[in-house]
Structure formats: structure tokens, C-alpha cells
Nucleic acid binder design. Structure first.
Lengths: 221, 221
DNA sequence: AGCGCCGCGTTTGCATGCAAAGAATGCCGG
DNA sequence: CCGGCATTCTTTGCATGCAAACGCGGCGCT
């Protein structure tokens, strides 16, 4: 599959460890990221850590002020709205392309991810986390299946927001139901090769999520 | 303006030097990029060069094979088509937002860039190069004016193709005329705050460029 | 003669030294 | 007692040492 190729270099390993930590909320926004400390914790040295931080800065997950260090970026309602606006631009297009270009393997993978999603009832935190991860995987497979390296790159520059927000989302029964519904429809549309439908469903899916999250955040602050 | 902040660190300096060299064609596709050589040439050391290469890899301008080195990425017709497809997704949206959100400064900047474009007659290579650069600046200002950090990030993951292709474009009198026309219309629509019109013009602009370039490349190979 | 194996040079990727820029602290003057 | 300045201490960013991986070329084996 296309996604292999994950270089076994410290830089990449550190980058992924940090990204996961940030997305899962183990590193809170604002946390100062000191090279030496991270190097120790991740069994590496300052150089790979520095490189990873540069890459994560470009992903928008950390902020680097020259000569002053890196911190975990914090997200506010505006960021969330911005993020979802861009997603609602890119992902529907990706879905349409995916419907036209996906191959057997991709379809099987998509289907399998969806099946696994259905197996979770979101009764506990672990199940919730699993749902978040599966959701990301589902969307990732679609973007990949669009077969456009540039689109993938554009998405990756936009992808992540801390899972805290996403958890909020999946905790809500109605949203969960709506999402799984959309995923099922997406799967069907893509399998049928119906790009227009896939695009429309994805647009609804993302816009719905956006509306919910913005509302929730507005209510909290 | 938002774009300030250009860190005076070697990494960034090297990154920009390399990007410019690649985009201007001074580094041809396929060229092997050895850390030590570049470090010497750019009066730096291997570490910043390595970091710059990592970032450029993420921009899609160089390819890094772990343990085997970096090379200047080569572009074929498919890449070009892919690139322009993504641009024709992102930029019309950016234009619409820009029309709604641009401020006085941005408008002045956009207008000024357009004026300068008109001053070039594309009679010689220098003038042509200047037109390419101004065109990039024009589009850059619009994306910035959209006021969406994520959109900017997404674009930057997609931005550059070697200027060779763009030069081909600007050399063509009809395309040049069409482009300047579109830019004028864009400027007008954005100034008038007409997002829908700006979006439509931009879509036409990019689709037109795409069609021309794909055709030219197909004819050459 | 063809094929494969082994050793060598080159180059990457990681670790770490080192100077300089910020941040923190204490000292002195008002 | 508080504010401003100098000094110290921390941390970054760059340079460079060093081991290990890759590719090449020569050598021996079949």
C-alpha cells in the first residue's frame, strides 16, 4: 500500500510520538518543549527532536519562536472554525476523487475500518479513543484513495487538532450516530463510484461536525 | 502584516536559497543534494542544510530516501495536472474569502503588485522572470488576505513548481493577456467585496492555466 | 566467463561540543 | 521599599565527531 515507506529514522519516530502526544492531549497547549528534556524522554538526542519540532511547526501543532523555544500550540474557537472550513473545502473534493479512483484494496480497507467502528459502543474512554482513531483513519483512507499526492500534502498541513475536541464530539450520541451514518453513506457512494454523492455526503459530514464543535466551544467560553 | 517573522536562522535562509534555486531551475530535477556540498556552497553546516531539506521535502520540492540522500524532485504532466487541480480547489475559495475580509493594506498591496505587472512587456527573459515572480506574489497576497492560517498552510504544501513551466506559460502572448485580464477582474471583484465573482474569476483563471500547461506538456512528450 | 561475495569509500543520521541569545536573579541606587 | 542594571544560568542554534548503512569495485568461486 501507498502509506508504507515510514522511514525508521529517529526524526520520524520522535515526530510521531510528539504528534500523538499532542493530539491525545498528553501534552497540553502552551507546554514548553525543551529539546534536551524531550530527547531524554524519547531516547534520542537533540538533533532529531529539533527536526521533528520543525516539521510539527509546519503541521501547525507547535509554535516555534526563534531563539526562544517551542511550545504546544493552543487552539481556540476561531482555529477550530478555520480548520473545519478548510477541511470542508478539501475533503469533499477528496471524496469525489476517491469514488472515481479507489481500487479494490482501498475499498476493502475503507470497509474494514468502518466495520471496526461499528463494533465500538463508546461506553468507556478507551472505546471513545478508538472511535476517534478509527474516524481519522477512515478520513485518511479516503484522502489517500483520491490518489493526489498534493491533496494529501495539503490535508496533512491541516489535519490535526487535539483529540480533546474530537472526544467531545464522539461523546455526543447524536453526533456519533450522524457520523457513522455519513460514513456508511460515504462507503456506499464510493463503492458505487458516485463521486457527486460522495462529495455531497462528505460536505454534509464535515459541515455538521463543524457546526457542532463551534457551538460547543462557544457554549463553554 | 502577518508574513513578517522571517526568522534569521540559517535553516530558513538555506531553505529559501534552495527553494529559489529549484524553482528557478538552477538546480535541475534529479540533482543529488549532498549535505556537505550544499553546506559549503551556502556558507553553513550540515545541520541547517539537513533541516532545510526536510522542510523542502514536505513542500514537495525534494525527495528524500532514508539513508540514501535527497534529490531535486522531477515533475511530469501528471504532477502538473495534480498541482493545478488542487490549486483550482483552494485558490477560488481563497479569493472569495479575500474579497470578504481583505483590509486596506492588503488591497493596496494587491493593487500595487498588479500595477507593476502591467509595466512589464515580457520582451526579454528578465521581464518574463519578473512577471512570474509578480504573478506568484499576486496569488500569495490573495491567499494571505483570505485570513485563514490553515488555508495558507495548505497552499504552501502545494505551491511551487519549477519556474520553467511557468515561464512557458508567460511566454505565450494570449495566456499573458488572459492572465492579466483575470488579475484585473480579480482585483475589481475583491475591491468590490464580491466573493462570488472573485471565486468564479479565480476558478476560470486557474483552470485556464491548467488546460494550457497540460496541453503544452502533452505536446512536448 | 559469469556470478556472487566481501571489503572499502562515501554519505547519511545521531550525538554532542560550543558560542551566543534570552531569561532569571541579585545588587545597587533612588 | 521599589525599579533598573549587570551578571549568571539556561537553552537554543550551529558545527562537527563518529558509527553504521549503502553502493561500488575487485576478487574468488563455479
Amino acid at each position: 500500500m501507498r502509506t508504507g515507506e515510514v522511514a525508521q529514522t529517529h526524526t520520524v519516530r520522535v515526530q510521531e510520538a510528539l504528534r500523538t502526544a499532542i493530539l491525545e492531549g498528553r501534552l497540553e497547549p502552551g507546554t514548553r518543549l525543551r529539546a534536551e528534556t524531550l530527547a531524554e524522554r524519547l531516547r534520542s538526542s537533540r538533533t532529531p527532536v529539533r527536526e521533528a519540532l520543525l516539521l510539527l511547526a509546519r503541521e501547525g501543532l507547535v509554535e516555534i519562536e526563534p531563539r526562544r523555544g517551542a511550545t504546544v500550540r493552543s487552539f481556540d474557537a476561531a482555529d477550530l472554525a478555520d480548520l473545519y472550513e478548510v477541511r470542508s473545502l478539501i475533503e469533499p473534493h477528496a471524496a469525489a476523487r476517491a469514488a472515481e479512483r479507489i481500487d479494490e484494496g482501498g475499498l476493502a480497507q475503507l470497509s474494514e475500518v468502518h466495520e471496526r467502528s461499528l463494533a465500538h459502543d463508546a461506553a468507556d474512554e478507551d472505546s471513545l479513543a478508538a472511535l476517534c482513531a478509527l474516524n481519522e483513519e477512515f478520513h485518511g483512507v479516503i484522502v489517500q484513495a483520491a490518489g493526489s499526492p498534493r491533496l494529501t500534502a495539503a490535508m496533512s498541513a491541516v489535519s490535526g487538532i487535539p483529540r480533546v475536541f474530537r472526544a467531545r464530539f464522539w461523546r455526543d450520541g447524536e453526533q456519533r450516530e450522524q457520523s457513522l451514518f455519513c460514513h456508511r453513506e460515504l462507503l456506499g457512494a464510493i463503492r458505487a463510484g458516485n463521486g457527486g454523492l460522495a462529495e455531497a455526503v462528505m460536505r454534509m459530514h464535515i459541515q455538521g461536525a463543524r457546526a457542532f464543535l463551534v457551538e460547543v466551544m462557544a457554549g463553554e467560553h
